[in-house]
Design a protein around this nucleic acid. Sequence first.
DNA 1: CACAGCTCCTGGCAGC
DNA 2: TGCTGCCAGGAGCTGT
Length: 273
Amino acid sequence: MPELPEVETIVRGLRRHLSGQVITGVDILWERTVAAPDSRQFAERLIGQTVHAIDRRGKYILFRLTRDTLIAHLRMTGKFLFFAHGDPITASDHARVKITFASGDQLVFQDVRKFGRLYLVAEPAHILSRLGPEPLDDLDLGRFQRLLRSHRRQIKPLLLDQHILAGVGNIYTDEILWAARIHPLRRSDKLSDREIACLFKAMQSILQQAITAGGTTIRDYADSEQRPGRFLSQLAVYGRSGEPCPRCGTPIQRMRVGGRGTHICPQCQPYNP
DNA sequence: CACAGCTCCTGGCAGC
DNA sequence: TGCTGCCAGGAGCTGT
């Protein structure tokens, strides 16, 4: 499940390969992957446009083209696979959209579970304006504190809410809360100044470390060159229920918070509302 | 406003 | 071995 560090890693790879390339062909293999406009217009409008830049906003990938912006959300299993001209095309039968460039290079959007979406828009703000701030770029401690205290919600679902904060998903939320020793059900407006400072520091350092490691590969995440992330071994709690807490040795517990699988150390993250 | 539950999807796995 | 059926989850949506 690509989150901010994985998407950032993917964007950096795509940037190296696609900057300056001209789109000459678009092949849509699964219609619903294209969210907007309709698939015929999507393909027609893309052809002839040049990739000028590639950016990230939250978990969205933004391809800045000549006239439009191609926006991609990978959701659970979406991947961009890059094939240089002449490379054997190893994409599986889960390819949903193929984009061909004048160079002969090819970009394949592959997505087993078909949740991923592509949008071609003239004005990206329609999609992006609903996103909260970037945790690594737009926030300081003061703003983060105001953000948490302006809602009365369980801290984990709040951190996962992309309208509040853009880019943090289920894996890193569990890691961040463990690092800050905060129980996922704690109310956001009842955290102390010290706890919020700790949470802020944990969030920035974990996201940054994960980017440095090229993200986390749980099942099948890989970057555009099909390399897995190296952060898995640094996960303290996610996917480790029953294993000892790296800090105190207490077995990691799995629970459900806001409908999501959640991993905590019951010793380090006590729940006292 | 907060939040539970539903939807979309498929591969992987537990259970028999 | 081979089947069934449940589960994972990001985000938008509805209902309470």
